[in-house]
Design a protein around this nucleic acid. Structure first.
Lengths: 116, 116
DNA sequence: GCCTTTACTTCCTTTTTGGTAAGTATCTGT
DNA sequence: ACAGATACTTACCAAAAAGGAAGTAAAGGC
């Protein structure tokens, strides 16, 4: 994470990458195990999930709880700091809903441009 | 822009990359010329600025106006669609302000971990 | 005729991110 | 003794994003 001055960029750095926002979004509905997350995030590999969870934990957005059982059980949940991102994620969700049509139109349009 | 189902991820795709949010943030205060943007975004190269502006224009978040003068004058401003992202950017800014201390602490901490 | 200004583009290299496939540890059940 | 379950790790490769340096076009001023 490089230096930054722009207040708007700071938050985005915590959500950067293809999976972090999606992982957090899942955890907003409550605690989940590693395997539950993997099954819930279609397309993610175990490597990416483990890596992203580790970064989210390092950034203190989530809490990892390991139970001394075998086979292992590890649960992930949002920390208060993680919950503090709620307004951002809600705003993103709202925007996505409000602008669905425009977004779909754009995607089709951009897809066409690429193949030309 | 790949398929996506997560409503929260959609918005982030429009802000992805190191510069887009910062560019939009600058434009919230009004129209700016290419050179003004370049000077305002410390560290950006002309190549990156041109590329990102082109993508933002393709995504219809900004409007490019070219004047038939020489040397050329090109102005960039937010479109209504770009303005619709205001709540997201405001939420990000707010979060950055509210959590300044925590964020700085985290950055120092993570920086230390890296060098170890 | 040449330098300056502005808004780019092009080519090439480096860095970062994402992905695939295989392997590991440990206990339970058969 | 061996397969299955769970939560990972490791080595390697591919793709995407970012960056540096140089070049381009067109008019005006000296």
């Amino acid at each position: 994470m490089a230096q930054n001055i722009c207040p708007v960029e700071t938050g985005l750095q915590f959500l950067s990458g293809r999976w972090k926002a999606r992982i957090l979004w899942k955890l907003y509905n409550g605690t989940l195990r590693f395997g539950e997350l993997r099954r819930g995030l279609s397309g993610i590999t175990e490597k990416m999930l483990a890596q992203q969870l580790k970064e989210l934990e390092r950034d203190q957005l989530i809490i990892r709880t390991q139970y001394p059982e075998m086979p292992p059980r590890v649960e992930y949940s949002l920390s208060p700091f993680g919950r503090s991102l709620t307004p951002v994620l809600e705003a993103l969700k709202q925007w996505g809903n409000d602008n669905q049509k425009q977004i779909i139109r754009l995607k089709n349009q951009n897809a066409k441009l690429e193949t030309k």
